[in-house]
Amino acid sequence: MKYVDANLVAKKMNGRLAANHISQIIFLLATLIGLVVLVILFYRVLMDGLGWINFDFLTNRLSTRPERAGIMGALLGTLWLMIVVAPVTMLLGIGTAIYLEEYAKKGRMHSFIQTNISNLAGVPSIVFGILGLTVFVRGLGFGNIVLAGGLTMSLLVLPIVVVASQEALRAVPQFLREASYGMGATKWQTIKNVVLPAAIPGILTGLILALSRAVGETAPLVVIGIPALLIPFPNGIFDKFTVLPMQIYYWTIDASIVEEYANLAAATIVVLLVVLLIMNSIAVMIRNKYQKRY
């Protein structure tokens, strides 16, 4: 008696193998869709915008006339925004991470703060805009200045920095801390002189990624109320300002009025993407160069 009918097995096996093969190709194609969209997107933006990028475009003030409009104001605005966001998120993010990882006892308070941070990461950015509008712009009476926008952005990207810093601190091996204690160092001396220096590449990477998120974020600033046509350059954190994504937004929605605005928007997108590319490359470089494995 034959337990296995070889012919039947072979027949069935062919179909199963074919299904496996076909689905492998489908899965590959699905993965490539992302790549295709990315290529089309870059191609479109470059075609529309590259011809408009020149020295004047980068250094001129904003203007209603497309051929005279420049984005220097938006570039400076983005820079000033970063000058607020970088130190604030660094202080708040690293401070929170050190507290959670090094000082807090694993208890109710610890898990409460931790849960709260992961929930904050899921809050839509526009809700942070409402918070900024209510508290910073109106409540404290700042108006729509760099400081108000920067503080709002800082709260928005805070969870990114906290989580990245926590991972970096956790990756510092316990024996380094114990060696430091063994030499008679106190807890803060250990953190300051041993743990933080060892964790700083990971923390910096997270910080730069958070900043690049803030550079590209638009929704909270729309809510705070950034003027569409701001001629004077911002000269400090108490000035009114505009940023690159805001300018893209206004030029895109006004493209139905003046056609060339679409080209200006595309050109600004190219500049924005270049800025983001530089920031992300720095982050990757820091990660590859300084990250030690213990």
Binding site: L41, V45, P245, Y249, A266, N280
Partner: peptide, 13 residues
């Protein structure tokens, strides 16, 4: 990592 405003431009134009 592409900002959503860029996707908005892409969708619209």
């Amino acid at each position: 990592g592409i900002p959503t405003i860029v996707y908005g431009f892409f969708a619209f134009t």
